[in-house]
Nucleic acid binder design. Structure first.
Lengths: 383, 383
DNA sequence: GGGCTTCGTTCAGTTGCTTAAGAATGTGGG
DNA sequence: CCCACATTCTTAAGCAACTGAACGAAGCCC
């Protein structure tokens, strides 16, 4: 009953074609037929409709033995999506085209008026056709993240309210899942195999994409993978959670508690600029050969690596993407640590070669990812 | 490109209807229309065809205000599947109908001739129409399980060879995944929500079903979830794996090493009857108030609970099913331990109420599950 | 220019479903 | 008993998506 055949006849060709072009960047009609399994006739018909609607554009021809292929691409400006990321001090808005590329960006103080207001400003400033905006993706901060004007709200409430205020569909997603969808959508990763995106912002999480669909994990689920069965108690009520032992908050707290590390990172004893910024300071210090900060990160990384290995083993993944500002700042520690732990066992025992990469736009992944979630939802009607 | 629209027009109605009836046991045509979202006309047409093919049977009528409904069920004998489970000393064959119910069972010494031979015997002895047998599901034992006549084979090889010998399609699945699919298919669990089936046979594993589809985990992935980041080295090359710390083999080894526990369980110092049997002996001893054996199980259970919590958190599950001979024998320890760990945090922090149940046919779950995998594959053509 | 190759389109036909109307099969009321 | 009435199921006509196969289009090579 999950995949009900829908009221009208759902034209699978449209979605197949759009998705295939998204994944390949550009394709000709015959290539589309080969890739999607449709006949050339069906592709021809559907493509014409998509061209008429302005979703696709013809772009050059590539020579062959006979008639050259006319290549097709998504028209980036045909459909737009907005992504919103709420941090403690600042709210970031991004406007992306249907290929996921960023068209414009806007940052405002966290408490500045309403979200709907910011979105309106972004759209106006960008001078785009507002009717083309498919919807708004919002990155839901973790339950512990300190976003004062959101405290006490739940995702459903935010979604309903923002949808009402902005008059557009709103999707709310956690940062890690959004980032994972972003990787799939924009960086064209994971079309052929499942993967996980590990995300470190003000907390740590993972988004898992299987067959191009995100598994709906709980907010911050990866942060509460157990890496120490009898470890210290976590705020969630359990013991030995990754977040407690190795999350950015834990790293920053440890750095503050250690005068030498705090000095290396230039952390003020009392004033915090937020977890994300403080963690970045620790990472910078480590990179500049601050031994205490480096040691703290190494410890954290060893736990993250253990949790990553759990996920890789559990779901038989062979691809991990590190993303989010935390990994953007400290991937030089976390990347190798994860690889060291994940690769040998994978190769030797499971005959699996695990790749660990860092996202190309790690620092802003979750906001652009939130926009990608909106784009994704318009392609895959089935849920 | 994953869900290509197929060569002909793929009739989604057939699959929706069969799956809806499977899940609900029996339904009338109007109910089917409501549940599947199809129109009554479409249901009528499709149902007639399914009746003609003998897949469905009409079974009684339930009164209403007007014309009574004629209820439809799957004809259990219309399609059959064989499940095969290879253990160290014995190979079990089960023949099930398309509802997953066991029609007949056969156990042979592990080394008795060929698998194809056993399947042939099973079908002959059952006196069923062999043409109705959709295929054979084989439970692939873990890489460490001691099945002598399979040593050095890989799943692909087994599949190809058995398909050739038996002349039927063969699907190979690991025990935990098979058991999970079996729960979904036979016990009608998880139609509305994702769940995990934890399986303990001669090793420990988990099958995860989301939207009625099994996530393809590696063989024994759950056994190599890390519950102790700096724990003892595992044969897989990693550290602190669940299986090393708490798997049945570890429990049995610990019982053997402890004279008091070995005495309680009646374990011979030198001769082993196989991990599964030895573990069952330990569980029996614990149930009969053998304190040392109980302590060993409690320790194991605390690790399993930690790993279970990781999975529950990671994938936001609210249902765990314990299955396999190991849990069948020792669920009185593992069930409460897992509940103690998983429920409080889930309820308090994630606003999620996690249910932990024991499978109704835990001891033989993987063999019947393997048959269910075959049935499942015939319903969901999409991979 | 005439093959040759490859790309894309057109057109008739099939199929799975829809909508709309009607047949079947029960209940309860005169 | 016969007739509304309710509800279930079937039949008939139509639409839209896709298939198959033949055909037009656009380049290269001789």
């Amino acid at each position: 009953m999950r995949d009900r055949p829908g009221r009208g006849h759902r034209p699978a060709a449209r979605e197949s074609i759009l998705d295939a072009i998204r994944a390949a960047e550009q394709l000709s009609r015959v290539e589309l037929a080969a890739v999607t399994g449709l006949t050339e006739a069906a592709v021809s018909m559907t493509v014409r409709r998509l061209l008429d609607e302005g979703l696709l554009i013809e772009t050059g021809r590539t020579p062959t033995g006979g008639k050259p292929r006319t290549m097709l691409r998504l028209d980036p400006a045909a459909r737009l999506a907005v992504g919103v990321h709420l941090d403690r001090d600042v709210t970031t808005f991004v406007l992306t085209g249907q290929t996921g590329g960023v068209i414009s960006r806007l940052a405002r103080p966290a408490l500045a008026a309403d979200l709907a207001d910011g979105i309106d400003l972004l759209l106006t400033a960008s001078g785009v056709d507002r009717a083309r905006c498919l919807g708004i993706g919002v990155v839901w901060p973790g339950p512990r993240d300190d976003v004062p004007h959101l405290r006490g709200w739940d995702p459903t409430e935010l979604r309903k309210r923002l949808a009402e205020e902005s008059g557009r569909p709103v999707l709310v997603e956690d940062g890690a899942t959004a980032a994972a969808v972003g990787e799939y959508w924009v960086a064209r990763i994971g079309a052929d195999r499942p993967f996980a995106a590990l995300h470190m912002g003000s907390s740590i999480g993972a988004g898992i994409v299987v067959d191009g669909r995100a598994l709906r994990g709980s907010v911050g689920g990866f942060g509460h993978v157990c890496v120490q069965a009898d470890g210290p108690e976590c705020w969630c009520g359990s013991r030995g959670c990754l977040e407690t032992l190795a999350g950015p908050e834990a790293v920053v707290a440890a750095a503050r508690a250690d005068p030498a590390a705090a000095a290396e990172a230039g952390l003020d004893r009392s004033v915090s600029r937020g977890v994300t910024a403080d963690f970045a300071a620790v990472a910078r210090a480590a990179r500049a050969h601050g031994p205490r900060c480096l040691a703290l990160l190494e410890t954290s990384a060893s736990y993250v690596a253990a949790a990553a290995e759990s996920v890789v083993n559990l779901l038989d993944l062979d691809l991990l993407v590190l993303t989010g500002p935390g990994f953007a700042a400290a991937s030089f520690v976390y990347g190798p640590a994860i690889m060291r732990r994940v690769q040998p066992a994978g190769a030797r025992t499971w005959n699996r070669s695990v790749t660990v990469t860092v996202s190309s736009a790690a620092a802003t992944a979750s906001a652009t990812g939130a926009a990608a979630v909106v784009l994704q939802s318009h392609l895959r009607r089935q849920q």
